[in-house]
Amino acid sequence: MKHLITATGLVLATQAVAETPVLNVYTYDSFATEWGPGPAIEEGFEAQCGCDLKWVTAGDGAALLSRLRLEGEGTEADVVLGLDTNLTAAARDTGLFAPQTVSADYALPIAWSDDTFVPFDWGYFAFVGNAEDPKPANFRALADSDRRVVIQDPRSSTPGLGLLLWIKAAYGDEAPQVWADLKDNIVTVTPGWSEAYGMFLDGEADLVLSYTTSPAYHVIAEEDASKVALPFDEGHYLQVEVAGAVAGSDQPELAQAFLAYLASDAAQSVIPTTNWMYPAVTPEGGLPDGFTDLVTPAKSLLVPEGDVPAMRDAALEEWRAALSQ
Protein backbone atom coordinates (compact mmCIF):
# COMPACT_ATOMS: atom_id res chain seq x y z
CA MET A 1 0.00 0.00 0.00
CA LYS A 2 2.74 2.36 1.02
CA HIS A 3 4.61 1.63 -2.21
CA LEU A 4 1.47 2.30 -4.20
CA ILE A 5 1.05 5.70 -2.58
CA THR A 6 4.67 6.52 -3.26
CA ALA A 7 4.33 5.39 -6.86
CA THR A 8 1.15 7.41 -7.36
CA GLY A 9 2.87 10.41 -5.86
CA LEU A 10 5.80 10.01 -8.19
CA VAL A 11 3.57 9.71 -11.24
CA LEU A 12 1.61 12.79 -10.22
CA ALA A 13 4.80 14.70 -9.54
CA THR A 14 6.22 13.74 -12.92
CA GLN A 15 3.03 14.88 -14.62
CA ALA A 16 3.12 18.16 -12.72
CA VAL A 17 6.67 18.70 -13.90
CA ALA A 18 5.76 17.75 -17.44
CA GLU A 19 2.86 20.18 -17.42
CA THR A 20 5.00 23.11 -16.30
CA PRO A 21 7.54 23.76 -19.01
CA VAL A 22 10.75 25.44 -17.89
CA LEU A 23 12.13 28.42 -19.76
CA ASN A 24 15.87 28.88 -19.14
CA VAL A 25 16.86 32.50 -19.55
CA TYR A 26 20.60 33.19 -19.47
CA THR A 27 21.41 36.68 -18.28
CA TYR A 28 24.08 38.71 -16.48
CA ASP A 29 24.18 38.61 -12.71
CA SER A 30 22.93 42.08 -11.81
CA PHE A 31 19.80 41.64 -13.97
CA ALA A 32 18.54 38.76 -11.84
CA THR A 33 19.35 40.09 -8.36
CA GLU A 34 16.62 41.42 -6.10
CA TRP A 35 17.51 45.00 -7.11
CA GLY A 36 17.47 44.23 -10.82
CA PRO A 37 14.49 43.80 -13.17
CA GLY A 38 14.63 39.99 -12.88
CA PRO A 39 12.17 39.28 -10.06
CA ALA A 40 9.39 41.54 -11.45
CA ILE A 41 9.82 40.22 -14.98
CA GLU A 42 9.82 36.61 -13.77
CA GLU A 43 6.64 37.15 -11.80
CA GLY A 44 4.91 38.99 -14.64
CA PHE A 45 5.80 36.46 -17.31
CA GLU A 46 5.03 33.39 -15.18
CA ALA A 47 1.56 34.82 -14.48
CA GLN A 48 0.73 34.60 -18.18
CA CYS A 49 2.83 31.75 -19.58
CA GLY A 50 1.96 28.83 -17.31
CA CYS A 51 5.67 28.08 -17.20
CA ASP A 52 8.58 28.23 -14.84
CA LEU A 53 11.10 30.93 -15.77
CA LYS A 54 14.57 30.03 -14.55
CA TRP A 55 17.41 32.54 -14.55
CA VAL A 56 20.90 31.23 -15.23
CA THR A 57 23.49 33.92 -14.65
CA ALA A 58 27.01 34.81 -15.75
CA GLY A 59 29.15 37.70 -14.51
CA ASP A 60 28.42 40.23 -17.26
CA GLY A 61 27.46 40.50 -20.94
CA ALA A 62 30.86 39.31 -22.18
CA ALA A 63 30.85 36.37 -19.75
CA LEU A 64 27.35 35.55 -20.94
CA LEU A 65 28.54 35.26 -24.53
CA SER A 66 31.57 33.20 -23.42
CA ARG A 67 29.27 30.83 -21.54
CA LEU A 68 27.13 30.39 -24.63
CA ARG A 69 30.18 29.74 -26.80
CA LEU A 70 31.48 27.15 -24.31
CA GLU A 71 28.17 25.32 -24.28
CA GLY A 72 27.64 25.59 -28.03
CA GLU A 73 24.85 23.51 -29.55
CA GLY A 74 24.36 21.67 -26.27
CA THR A 75 23.26 24.79 -24.40
CA GLU A 76 20.19 24.59 -22.23
CA ALA A 77 19.48 28.26 -22.81
CA ASP A 78 16.15 29.08 -24.39
CA VAL A 79 16.69 32.83 -24.30
CA VAL A 80 19.88 34.87 -23.87
CA LEU A 81 19.24 38.30 -22.39
CA GLY A 82 21.83 41.02 -21.83
CA LEU A 83 24.15 41.09 -24.84
CA ASP A 84 24.88 44.58 -26.14
CA THR A 85 25.52 46.06 -29.56
CA ASN A 86 29.27 45.49 -29.15
CA LEU A 87 28.72 41.76 -28.73
CA THR A 88 25.89 41.08 -31.17
CA ALA A 89 28.19 40.47 -34.16
CA ALA A 90 30.10 37.76 -32.31
CA ALA A 91 26.85 36.35 -30.93
CA ARG A 92 25.33 36.22 -34.41
CA ASP A 93 28.41 34.43 -35.71
CA THR A 94 27.84 31.55 -33.31
CA GLY A 95 24.77 30.65 -35.38
CA LEU A 96 23.01 29.65 -32.18
CA PHE A 97 20.19 32.21 -32.40
CA ALA A 98 16.74 31.88 -33.94
CA PRO A 99 14.94 34.64 -35.87
CA GLN A 100 12.69 36.84 -33.75
CA THR A 101 9.18 37.96 -34.57
CA VAL A 102 8.58 40.80 -32.10
CA SER A 103 7.33 44.10 -33.41
CA ALA A 104 7.18 47.14 -31.16
CA ASP A 105 7.24 50.91 -31.33
CA TYR A 106 10.84 51.33 -30.17
CA ALA A 107 11.94 54.57 -28.54
CA LEU A 108 15.59 54.11 -29.47
CA PRO A 109 17.68 57.03 -30.77
CA ILE A 110 18.44 54.93 -33.85
CA ALA A 111 16.20 52.99 -36.21
CA TRP A 112 16.06 49.35 -35.10
CA SER A 113 15.61 46.54 -37.56
CA ASP A 114 17.16 43.28 -36.54
CA ASP A 115 15.80 39.87 -37.41
CA THR A 116 17.55 38.16 -34.48
CA PHE A 117 17.76 40.41 -31.46
CA VAL A 118 15.09 42.29 -29.51
CA PRO A 119 16.28 45.46 -27.74
CA PHE A 120 15.09 45.80 -24.15
CA ASP A 121 16.95 48.87 -22.89
CA TRP A 122 19.59 51.38 -23.90
CA GLY A 123 21.74 54.17 -22.59
CA TYR A 124 24.57 56.54 -23.41
CA PHE A 125 28.03 56.31 -21.89
CA ALA A 126 28.97 59.55 -20.18
CA PHE A 127 31.26 61.01 -17.57
CA VAL A 128 29.47 61.60 -14.30
CA GLY A 129 30.60 64.25 -11.84
CA ASN A 130 29.43 66.64 -9.16
CA ALA A 131 26.97 69.38 -10.14
CA GLU A 132 29.01 72.29 -8.74
CA ASP A 133 32.32 71.31 -10.44
CA PRO A 134 33.65 72.55 -13.83
CA LYS A 135 32.17 70.64 -16.76
CA PRO A 136 34.45 70.15 -19.77
CA ALA A 137 32.26 69.96 -22.89
CA ASN A 138 34.31 67.44 -24.91
CA PHE A 139 37.31 65.12 -24.73
CA ARG A 140 39.80 67.82 -25.76
CA ALA A 141 38.54 70.19 -23.07
CA LEU A 142 38.66 67.34 -20.58
CA ALA A 143 42.26 66.59 -21.55
CA ASP A 144 43.20 70.28 -21.14
CA SER A 145 41.51 70.51 -17.74
CA ASP A 146 42.84 69.34 -14.39
CA ARG A 147 39.84 67.05 -13.86
CA ARG A 148 40.78 63.63 -12.46
CA VAL A 149 38.85 60.79 -14.08
CA VAL A 150 38.60 57.10 -13.32
CA ILE A 151 37.77 54.75 -16.18
CA GLN A 152 37.31 51.01 -16.63
CA ASP A 153 39.53 48.55 -18.46
CA PRO A 154 38.13 47.81 -21.93
CA ARG A 155 39.39 44.23 -21.65
CA SER A 156 37.24 43.41 -18.64
CA SER A 157 34.41 45.92 -18.58
CA THR A 158 31.50 46.93 -20.82
CA PRO A 159 31.73 50.71 -20.19
CA GLY A 160 35.52 50.49 -20.65
CA LEU A 161 35.03 49.03 -24.12
CA GLY A 162 32.29 51.61 -24.75
CA LEU A 163 34.74 54.46 -24.08
CA LEU A 164 37.29 52.91 -26.43
CA LEU A 165 34.73 52.83 -29.27
CA TRP A 166 33.35 56.23 -28.28
CA ILE A 167 36.69 57.97 -28.77
CA LYS A 168 37.43 55.93 -31.88
CA ALA A 169 34.01 56.72 -33.39
CA ALA A 170 34.35 60.43 -32.56
CA TYR A 171 38.00 60.97 -33.49
CA GLY A 172 39.00 58.18 -35.86
CA ASP A 173 42.72 58.43 -36.64
CA GLU A 174 43.21 61.13 -34.01
CA ALA A 175 42.08 58.77 -31.24
CA PRO A 176 45.67 57.89 -30.14
CA GLN A 177 46.44 61.58 -29.64
CA VAL A 178 43.23 62.07 -27.62
CA TRP A 179 44.23 59.17 -25.37
CA ALA A 180 47.74 60.53 -25.00
CA ASP A 181 46.32 63.92 -23.98
CA LEU A 182 43.91 62.27 -21.54
CA LYS A 183 46.64 60.24 -19.90
CA ASP A 184 47.47 62.75 -17.17
CA ASN A 185 43.77 63.08 -16.28
CA ILE A 186 43.24 59.37 -15.80
CA VAL A 187 43.76 58.53 -12.13
CA THR A 188 43.49 54.83 -12.70
CA VAL A 189 41.79 52.08 -14.66
CA THR A 190 39.58 49.63 -12.75
CA PRO A 191 38.57 46.09 -13.74
CA GLY A 192 34.84 46.84 -13.55
CA TRP A 193 32.25 49.57 -13.28
CA SER A 194 31.58 49.07 -9.55
CA GLU A 195 35.13 49.78 -8.39
CA ALA A 196 35.35 52.92 -10.52
CA TYR A 197 31.99 54.26 -9.38
CA GLY A 198 32.82 53.54 -5.75
CA MET A 199 36.11 55.42 -6.06
CA PHE A 200 34.30 58.41 -7.57
CA LEU A 201 31.76 58.47 -4.72
CA ASP A 202 34.64 58.34 -2.23
CA GLY A 203 36.13 61.45 -3.82
CA GLU A 204 39.15 59.71 -5.35
CA ALA A 205 38.26 61.18 -8.76
CA ASP A 206 36.24 64.15 -10.07
CA LEU A 207 34.65 62.21 -12.89
CA VAL A 208 33.80 58.58 -13.57
CA LEU A 209 32.91 56.83 -16.79
CA SER A 210 29.31 55.67 -16.42
CA TYR A 211 25.95 56.38 -18.09
CA THR A 212 23.83 59.49 -18.66
CA THR A 213 21.19 57.67 -16.61
CA SER A 214 23.38 57.27 -13.50
CA PRO A 215 22.24 60.58 -11.93
CA ALA A 216 18.65 59.25 -12.07
CA TYR A 217 19.58 56.64 -9.47
CA HIS A 218 20.77 59.27 -7.02
CA VAL A 219 17.69 61.45 -7.65
CA ILE A 220 15.12 58.65 -7.38
CA ALA A 221 16.65 56.32 -4.77
CA GLU A 222 18.56 58.84 -2.65
CA GLU A 223 16.83 62.18 -3.41
CA ASP A 224 20.27 63.53 -4.19
CA ALA A 225 20.54 65.85 -7.21
CA SER A 226 24.26 66.56 -6.79
CA LYS A 227 25.43 64.06 -9.42
CA VAL A 228 25.27 65.04 -13.09
CA ALA A 229 26.34 63.59 -16.41
CA LEU A 230 28.49 65.85 -18.63
CA PRO A 231 27.15 66.46 -22.16
CA PHE A 232 29.96 66.12 -24.71
CA ASP A 233 29.54 67.96 -28.00
CA GLU A 234 31.18 65.27 -30.15
CA GLY A 235 28.21 63.05 -29.27
CA HIS A 236 27.82 60.11 -26.90
CA TYR A 237 28.35 56.44 -27.57
CA LEU A 238 25.19 54.38 -27.48
CA GLN A 239 24.71 51.03 -25.82
CA VAL A 240 21.66 48.98 -26.72
CA GLU A 241 21.03 45.83 -24.69
CA VAL A 242 19.29 42.98 -26.47
CA ALA A 243 17.82 39.53 -26.00
CA GLY A 244 17.59 36.67 -28.45
CA ALA A 245 15.93 33.26 -28.67
CA VAL A 246 18.18 30.22 -28.98
CA ALA A 247 17.60 28.12 -32.11
CA GLY A 248 18.14 24.77 -30.39
CA SER A 249 15.61 25.54 -27.66
CA ASP A 250 13.04 22.89 -26.71
CA GLN A 251 10.61 25.73 -25.92
CA PRO A 252 10.65 27.85 -29.09
CA GLU A 253 7.11 29.24 -28.63
CA LEU A 254 7.75 30.16 -25.01
CA ALA A 255 11.02 31.81 -25.98
CA GLN A 256 9.27 33.97 -28.58
CA ALA A 257 6.49 34.74 -26.09
CA PHE A 258 9.13 35.85 -23.60
CA LEU A 259 10.78 38.16 -26.14
CA ALA A 260 7.36 39.68 -26.85
CA TYR A 261 6.76 40.09 -23.11
CA LEU A 262 10.12 41.80 -22.76
CA ALA A 263 9.00 44.49 -25.22
CA SER A 264 5.59 44.82 -23.52
CA ASP A 265 4.61 47.67 -21.25
CA ALA A 266 4.64 45.44 -18.14
CA ALA A 267 8.34 44.62 -18.55
CA GLN A 268 9.44 47.94 -19.98
CA SER A 269 7.97 49.98 -17.12
CA VAL A 270 10.12 47.97 -14.68
CA ILE A 271 13.42 48.61 -16.50
CA PRO A 272 14.22 52.28 -15.70
CA THR A 273 14.29 52.08 -11.91
CA THR A 274 15.79 48.59 -11.70
CA ASN A 275 18.38 48.44 -14.48
CA TRP A 276 18.86 52.24 -14.52
CA MET A 277 18.73 52.41 -18.31
CA TYR A 278 16.21 53.86 -20.76
CA PRO A 279 13.44 51.39 -21.65
CA ALA A 280 13.42 50.32 -25.31
CA VAL A 281 9.71 51.15 -25.53
CA THR A 282 8.43 54.20 -23.67
CA PRO A 283 6.03 52.97 -20.96
CA GLU A 284 2.38 54.13 -21.13
CA GLY A 285 2.87 56.14 -17.95
CA GLY A 286 5.92 57.85 -19.43
CA LEU A 287 9.42 57.83 -17.95
CA PRO A 288 9.87 58.16 -14.18
CA ASP A 289 10.52 61.69 -12.89
CA GLY A 290 14.27 61.40 -12.39
CA PHE A 291 14.68 60.33 -16.05
CA THR A 292 13.00 63.30 -17.67
CA ASP A 293 15.62 65.95 -16.92
CA LEU A 294 18.68 63.89 -17.82
CA VAL A 295 21.28 65.01 -20.32
CA THR A 296 20.15 64.10 -23.85
CA PRO A 297 23.06 64.06 -26.30
CA ALA A 298 22.69 66.01 -29.53
CA LYS A 299 24.36 63.20 -31.43
CA SER A 300 24.37 59.41 -30.99
CA LEU A 301 27.50 57.52 -31.90
CA LEU A 302 27.40 53.81 -32.65
CA VAL A 303 29.88 51.67 -34.55
CA PRO A 304 28.01 49.25 -36.86
CA GLU A 305 28.19 45.82 -35.22
CA GLY A 306 30.06 44.26 -38.12
CA ASP A 307 32.87 46.81 -37.75
CA VAL A 308 33.20 46.35 -33.99
CA PRO A 309 35.60 43.35 -33.87
CA ALA A 310 38.26 44.87 -36.14
CA MET A 311 37.86 48.37 -34.72
CA ARG A 312 38.07 47.35 -31.06
CA ASP A 313 41.27 45.37 -31.62
CA ALA A 314 42.92 48.36 -33.29
CA ALA A 315 41.54 50.77 -30.70
CA LEU A 316 42.73 48.54 -27.85
CA GLU A 317 46.30 48.62 -29.16
CA GLU A 318 46.15 52.42 -29.49
CA TRP A 319 44.76 52.72 -25.97
CA ARG A 320 47.41 50.49 -24.50
CA ALA A 321 50.24 52.20 -26.36
CA ALA A 322 49.05 55.68 -25.33
CA LEU A 323 48.48 54.90 -21.67
CA SER A 324 51.45 52.58 -21.10
CA GLN A 325 54.09 55.18 -21.86
Partner: peptide, 12 residues
Protein backbone atom coordinates in the same frame (compact mmCIF):
# COMPACT_ATOMS: atom_id res chain seq x y z
CA UNK B 1 44.66 41.00 -10.11
CA UNK B 2 42.35 43.77 -8.92
CA UNK B 3 44.92 45.34 -6.57
CA UNK B 4 47.51 45.65 -9.29
CA UNK B 5 45.11 47.02 -11.88
CA UNK B 6 43.41 49.55 -9.60
CA UNK B 7 46.48 50.83 -7.76
CA UNK B 8 48.81 50.37 -10.72
CA UNK B 9 47.08 53.24 -12.45
CA UNK B 10 46.76 51.97 -16.01
CA UNK B 11 47.49 49.33 -18.64
CA UNK B 12 51.24 49.45 -17.93
Amino acid sequence: FAVVLILGGGPA
